Amino acid sequence: MTDASTVIAKPVSQNRAIWQQFRTHRGALFGLIVLGVLAVVVLIGPYLWIPEKLSVAEAIKLKNQGPSWRFPLGTDQLGRDMLARMMLAGRISLAVGLVAMTIAILFGTLIGVLAGYFRRLDGPLMRLTDMFLALPLIPLLLVLVMLFRDRVASIIGPEMGAFALIVFAIGITSWMSTARIVRGEVLTLKEREYVLAARSIGARPHRIILRHILPNVISPVMVSATLEVANAIITESVLSFLGLGFPPDFPTWGRLLFDGLQYMQVYPERVIWPGLAISLTVLSVNYIGDGLRDALDPRIRGR
């Protein structure tokens, strides 16, 4: 009969170990809860809170109202329910952050892997990265939006045209940090024993990259992805705040800030609500990124 003291404990799975380390980070848990609540509110809220339909005359009488039971967040300059517009704007802002992040991560990972693995591509691709880093981001985005907004809108419509142009412009100008991080990881990984062994038996470069390199750069890429979401939301808010983002009838949190700017001194809640939503979202995403960085590092979680 086996002594209980000699029984070897079952090893903890990697996913469970990552979660155990992640939940010890109070800021990351706070960010996950807040971001989850915001996502649920903006996704489900519009189906539960349906603003009453008002005539033009009634809407004009109700413009710039303060918070009340009828309008929990007040009304805007056209008498529209701010709560309904905040939830709709949240959908668009979060969608912009996720899609722009996806573009930046895919492009940055591709550049980083190619530069890190193939020595002859390292110099040209890193100089391209340095060139993009040297470009002033906001002026470049303003030029792109002003040049191509009308052309894209004439093809796929003003709303979808603005969305496609803005997320592509943000994504294509935000990949540089991911590329640098991935390149550094690949330079280390390609000298590991298992990569050298795969190369020695004649494995093709694309197979080595897909089977051995990419699975081991997922951790830093995930951390970079959380930061890119926050960066994309802030960048879109800046564009909308400058009046070069989405059309007025296609609200985002940045657009609501821009619309409420001229009423800020008389009706400060018009800028408080969208500004608070942007701040909470960005803060939550940054905290989640910090928690993922600690949880995905084997040295920190004691392995």
Rank of each mutant, 00 (worst) to 15 (best):
I213T: 01
A153E: 13
R127S: 09
P215E: 01
G161I: 00
R151L: 14
F22Y: 14
A197F: 07
R301L: 03
G90V: 00
T188V: 02
S68Y: 09
L214C: 05
M146K: 10
P124V: 01
A203N: 12
V217R: 02
G260T: 00
P46M: 00
N64V: 00
P124D: 06
V56S: 15
A198G: 13
S237Q: 02
D130N: 07
T75N: 04
S68Q: 09
L147S: 15
L227D: 05
S93R: 06
S200Y: 02
T129F: 10
V221C: 10
A57S: 14
L242S: 09
I8W: 06
P247C: 05
A295P: 11
H25G: 04
L48K: 02
T129H: 07
R127L: 09
P51D: 04
G79P: 11
I181W: 10
A230L: 01
I105M: 12
G79F: 03
S174P: 11
M222Y: 11
E58T: 05
G31N: 04
V12P: 12
I170D: 11
L121Q: 03
R119C: 03
V40T: 08
A84G: 15
L135T: 07
L73W: 08
E52P: 08
F132K: 05
L147C: 11
N286K: 03
N15H: 09
V221T: 13
R199H: 11
V167H: 11
V41M: 14
Q77C: 01
R119K: 13
W175I: 02
M264K: 09
L137W: 07
L54I: 00
L62M: 13
L54E: 12
A57I: 10
N286F: 04
N216A: 03
Q14I: 09
P136A: 00
S177E: 15
T2F: 12
K190L: 01
L292Y: 14
R70Y: 06
W273S: 05
T24G: 14
A59R: 14
D290P: 12
D81P: 07
G275A: 05
Y194N: 07
W273Q: 04
L43V: 07
I272E: 10
M126F: 07
I50P: 14
V221W: 08
M82G: 08
L257C: 02
F30V: 09
A59E: 07
L73M: 13
V42E: 10
I50K: 15
R23W: 03
L29P: 10
I50F: 10
Q20K: 11
T235Y: 06
F118L: 02
S237A: 14
L48W: 09
L244P: 12
D290E: 15
L256I: 01
V7Q: 14
R207C: 01
F22G: 04
A59V: 01
G157P: 12
I105A: 09
S177A: 14
P205T: 00
W19M: 08
P251H: 05
D290N: 10
L94Y: 06
S200W: 01
F71T: 01
L54T: 06
A95T: 10
